[in-house]
Design a protein around this nucleic acid. Structure first.
Lengths: 174, 174
DNA sequence: TGTAATCGGTTGAACATTCAACTAGTTGCG
DNA sequence: CGCAACTAGTTGAATGTTCAACCGATTACA
C-alpha cells in the first residue's frame, strides 16, 4: 500500500520538478547560445581536462559522467568532428579507445568555463543561502549514492577509483 | 570578471548535477517500465486531471508544465493515439484546441500514480530529512521564480492565474 | 470594412538519446 | 592450443525534442 505525499512534501517535490527543469534548460541554452556546446559535451571536456594526461578510455569517460557507452560514442563523435577531441587506439588493450582532448578542445573549454560558471551562479549558487546549498549538495549526494550503482544499463562494477581532486589542468570548477 | 566557485560550492553543484540526473532517469525509467509513460506524458495527465472539467487548452497545458507549444502538440498526439486524451475544438476561439482527458486516460493515471509516488519516495522524499526537503523545495521555488518568466521561447506574458490547489479529481499527489 | 499585426497551434526537418544487435579483442580454462 | 564467455566499443533504427516556417483565426485600428 503506497503512502501518499503530505502537502508539504508534494509542494517541495513540485517546486523541485519545475525548478530543476528550468535550471537545466537555462544552463543548456546559455552554453548552446554562447559556445555552441551541450551540457553533455561540456561535461566531457571537463572530465578530459581533469584527467592526468587529458585523455581517458571511453568506458572511464562513460562512467565518470554516468552516460551509456553508446551515448559517449555518439557525443565523442560530435566532439571529434569539431576537432575538440581525437580518438586513439589503446596500446594495452586492443579493444580500447582513448579519447584525448586537443589543444583546440582545451581552448574551447577555457573559453566556455567562465560563462558557464556565471550561469550556474546566476541560476543557482547566488540564489540560495550558502547553508542551503551545502544541504542541497548533501541531499543529492545521498540520492546519487542510492541510485548510482544501477544507472545506465551497462554501468559495470562499482569502481571506487575516484580520481584525486587536485588534478592538473583543472579549468572546470563549474 | 567571473568569480570561480569555492570548493564547497563546486562540490554541491556537482553532487546536484549527478544526483538530479540519476533521479530523473530513475523516475523516467520506472514510469516507462511499469506503465509505458514518459514523465512528460504523466505530467500532462496530472494537469488535465486537476483541471475542473478534466480538459485544458493546449496553451494552458503548455504553460502549466512549462513546455513549448510544439512539444505539447507532439506529446498530446501520442497521448491521443493511445486514447488517453481527445482533441476538441474550442467554441470561444476558432484557433483554440482543447485536450480532454478520457476515462481511459484517467484510469491510466489512477493506475500509474501510486507507483510513481512510490518512486518519488524511494528516490528522493524518504532519503532526506523533512527539514532538508522543505528547504530544497524553497530553493527550487526561488530558482523557478528567477528563471520562470523566460522559459520555453514562446512562454508568453506572465499569467499569474495560478489555479487553486484544491481542485476536483486530484489523483496526482506526486 | 479592410488590412496589418499578432496569436494559437501544427508541421516537418534536424538533431540527440535509447535500445538492441553486432564486431572484434580478451580472458578463463580444459 | 582451442573454444566459450565476456568486455569494449560501434552501429543504425526508433523515438523524442527543438527549431523555424507555416496556416488560419482574431484583434487593432484606420
Amino acid at each position: 500500500m503506497t503512502e501518499w505525499l503530505t502537502t508539504d512534501q508534494q509542494r517541495a517535490w513540485r517546486a523541485y520538478l519545475l525548478g530543476s527543469t528550468l535550471l537545466s534548460e537555462r544552463l543548456e541554452r546559455d552554453l548552446r547560445e554562447k559556445h555552441d556546446l551541450s551540457l553533455a559535451e561540456y561535461e566531457i571536456l571537463v572530465r578530459l581536462s581533469e584527467s592526468g594526461d587529458k585523455a581517458l578510455r571511453m568506458a572511464e569517460l562513460a562512467d565518470s559522467v554516468k552516460n551509456s557507452r553508446s551515448r559517449i560514442t555518439h557525443t565523442v563523435n560530435r566532439l571529434a568532428a569539431d576537432g575538440f577531441v581525437v580518438r586513439r587506439q589503446c596500446d594495452s588493450d586492443g579493444r580500447g579507445v582513448i579519447a584525448a582532448l586537443t589543444d583546440k578542445g582545451y581552448a574551447k573549454l577555457v573559453d566556455a568555463a567562465p560563462d558557464h560558471v556565471q550561469s550556474v551562479r546566476d541560476a543557482l549558487v547566488d540564489l540560495i543561502e550558502e547553508d542551503d546549498l551545502v544541504r542541497l549538495g548533501r541531499a543529492f549526494g545521498a540520492i546519487a549514492e542510492r541510485l548510482g550503482s544501477a544507472g545506465p544499463r551497462e554501468a559495470g562494477a562499482i569502481r571506487e577509483s575516484r580520481r584525486s581532486a587536485e588534478t592538473t589542468g583543472d579549468v572546470s570548477r563549474g
